[in-house]
Write a protein that binds this DNA or RNA. Structure first.
Length: 204
DNA sequence: CGAAGTCGGCAGTTACATCA
DNA sequence: TTGATGTAACTGCCGACTTC
C-alpha cells in the first residue's frame, strides 16, 4: 500500500465518521433493475434511458474529492465545477447539485450546533436564576432577623434614654445603613453582619 | 434605460437505496 | 415487509449579471 493510498484511507475514515450515511459502498447493480417511480418532470431534457444508465450513488473517491473541494470553498465557480466534473467523470450538473445539497447539510449541522449551544446557555441561565432567587430569599430572612434584633435593642435603649449621657447623640444619628429592603446603594451582603454589629456596638 | 435571457443559489420536495 | 433515514436529483423562485 502506498503512502498516498494510506492517507486517502485515513481521510476517508475521518469523513466517514462525520457523514456515516454518505459512504456506504456502492453495490453493483445485479439482476433485473427494479421499475422506478416516475419523476414529475425531466427539465434537463435527458432521455429516460440515459438517466437510467447513470450511477445513482457517487463512489468513495468521488465523494472524497468533492469533500476536499468543499472544505476549501463552499461555493463553486463555473470553472472549478467544470474542472472537478471532468476530474471525477461526472456531469457538471451533478457536481453543482452535490455542492448544493452539501451546503444544505452543512447549514443544518451548523443550526443544530447553534441550537445545542443556545440550549446549554439557556439551561445555565435558568440555573443561575434559581440560585439567585434562593439567595434573595435567604438574605430577606437575614434582614428580617436583624431588623427584629434592632427593634428589641431600640426598645431597650428607649427605656434608659433619660439618664444616658450619649443618648442624644446616638438618637440623632442617621438610620443604620442596612435598614430598608434593598434601598441602600453599595450594599454588600458579605459585610452585612459586620456593619450591623459595628452599628449596634454604639449602643453597648 | 428596460425587457429578455442566462446562471447560480436556496428552500422545499421527490425518488430511491439502505438498514434495523 | 415496513418505516426511518440519508442522499441524489428535481422544481420553482429569486437576484445578479449580460445582451440587445
Amino acid at each position: 500500500m502506498t503512502t498516498q493510498t494510506k492517507e486517502l484511507e485515513d481521510h476517508m475514515a475521518i469523513i466517514s465518521q462525520m457523514y456515516p450515511a454518505m459512504y456506504t459502498p456502492v453495490a453493483p447493480q445485479q439482476g433485473k433493475p427494479k421499475p422506478r417511480r416516475r419523476r414529475r418532470k425531466n427539465k434537463g431534457g435527458e432521455s429516460g434511458a440515459a438517466a437510467e444508465a447513470k450511477k445513482r450513488k457517487l463512489s468513495d473517491e468521488q465523494v472524497y474529492l468533492l469533500e476536499l473541494n468543499f472544505g476549501n470553498e463552499h461555493k463553486l465557480e463555473s470553472e472549478r465545477k467544470d474542472r472537478l466534473a471532468s476530474e471525477l467523470g461526472l456531469d457538471p450538473r451533478q457536481v453543482a447539485v452535490w455542492f448544493q445539497n452539501r451546503r444544505a447539510r452543512w447549514k443544518n449541522k451548523k443550526l443544530e450546533e447553534e441550537y445545542g449551544k443556545l440550549k446549554t446557555a439557556h439551561e445555565g441561565v435558568v440555573l443561575e436564576k434559581c440560585r439567585l432567587e434562593s439567595e434573595v430569599l435567604k438574605l430577606k430572612d437575614q434582614l428580617r432577623e436583624a431588623e427584629k434584633e434592632i427593634q428589641g435593642l431600640t426598645e431597650r435603649v428607649d427605656g434608659v434614654s433619660s439618664n444616658s449621657p450619649c443618648s442624644s447623640s446616638v438618637l440623632s444619628m442617621d438610620p443604620p445603613p442596612f435598614l430598608g429592603e434593598f434601598g441602600v446603594q453599595g450594599y454588600d451582603p458579605d459585610d452585612f453582619y459586620i456593619h450591623a454589629l459595628d452599628w449596634m456596638n454604639l449602643f453597648m
